[in-house]
Simulated assay, not measured.
Amino acid sequence: MLTNLHPPKVIEFALSQITEILKKHIEITSLYYFGMQSSAQGTHNSLNNGASKQQQHYHFYLLLLSKHISTNALANLSDIVRQDSGGKYTVSLLLYMPKQLIAASDHHKYFFCKIIQSGGLVEGSPFELAPLQLSQIPKLDIKGITNYTQDRIAIAKHCLHLSDIKENASILSAHLIRLSFEQLRLSTIYAFLNYHPQHYHPLYLFKLVLFCHEIPPNIFSEHLFEQSLLKSIFCFHHTELRYRSSALFSSADLHMAYFYSQCLLDYLLPIVNHHLQTLKTASHENEKT
């Protein structure tokens, strides 16, 4: 829903600036816009006669199709948009070659279908729907969505349960907390969007979860990724298990990461389950008709 904070003209101007930034670094075949979030940050300077200012921040969700994608382009382009816009704009890019969409299984084309048919074309040519055979996509695989989602949730619960925080096993606890965090986000994204992200950076996945459902800041905030120690746990890479010492994180840091992960799990679990039930009910109603 558009508000006075982000009317169509504001979004159009922002998208034009983002597009110009992206075009300098990647050849765009098609660029689709399918969602946004905005927030305002205010500052007050009591030393300058109480001067205050407010900066609006916009986060856009975009599908970018390009015939040539370089290594690590997704992360690089996201960083470039943030840097070149002075932090005013950030993006969650779904970055694919056209042939990747065409080669995807029919059951995994629902999300792309929605974007191409309902999203706004920002740059390039409309992607040809014929090669995707969107009109021939089978019925939504409710059973597959349910199984995948419930399996991911079961893994998230189990890993969080196993992350028994001990001083001599801190890197193992960090690994299990991070794995639980990741699996929970993957389950939510697939339940709501029927989409498998190809890029697994924790903040990237969390932004997609926010697109699926709003999460109150007191439950889990993206600002937690700005805290170096928590970020190190939520972004902990499995290769660290090979080289790092067991004293990489303190018990206090691990307990805090565990707390936020548990809060997010407790918050999202009923929401995801309710959504799955809604899908099943809708499917049964369609079968009756």
Rank of each mutant, 00 (worst) to 15 (best):
Q55S: 08
I233M: 14
Y58R: 09
Y190V: 00
S250R: 11
L269C: 02
S187W: 01
I18Q: 10
S261K: 05
P202F: 03
K288I: 00
L264N: 08
Q277G: 04
H161D: 04
I80N: 08
S250P: 04
S39C: 04
H6W: 03
T29N: 11
Q117C: 09
R242C: 06
E12Q: 13
G35H: 09
K99N: 14
L193Y: 03
Y32N: 04
Y110C: 02
Y89C: 05
C235L: 03
L162D: 11
L279D: 08
H44S: 06
H59Q: 08
T146N: 11
T281Q: 15
Q136A: 12
N76K: 13
Y200M: 09
H223K: 13
Y58D: 12
I18K: 14
T281C: 04
G144K: 08
A104V: 00
H213A: 08
V91G: 13
T289E: 09
K139S: 14
E214W: 04
T90K: 08
T71M: 11
T19C: 07
H275R: 13
K139D: 15
L65C: 06
Q17W: 10
Q41D: 02
F111C: 01
D84P: 01
I271N: 14
S283A: 14
V81G: 14
M1W: 07
E182N: 10
L160I: 05
F211C: 03
K207N: 15
S221T: 03
K24G: 02
S118G: 02
L269A: 02
I215E: 06
L65Q: 07
E20S: 15
H196M: 03
S30V: 00
A191F: 05
F181S: 06
G87H: 11
I171L: 15
K67G: 11
Q54M: 11
Y204L: 02
K166T: 01
L140K: 15
L248G: 02
L5Y: 07
T146R: 12
S261L: 02
L31M: 09
G35T: 03
H107N: 12
H107S: 12
L241C: 06
T43S: 14
H275S: 05
I26L: 06
Y33R: 02
I80R: 14
S38N: 12
Q17Y: 11
S135G: 14
Q183D: 08
L2R: 09
I115R: 14
G144L: 06
E123M: 03
L264H: 13
L248A: 14
I137C: 15
L129F: 02
Q117H: 06
I142M: 07
R82K: 14
M97R: 15
S135Q: 15
P7Q: 04
E123D: 14
L134S: 05
S173L: 03
I137T: 12
C263V: 00
L208Y: 03
S46W: 06
H201N: 09
L5R: 13
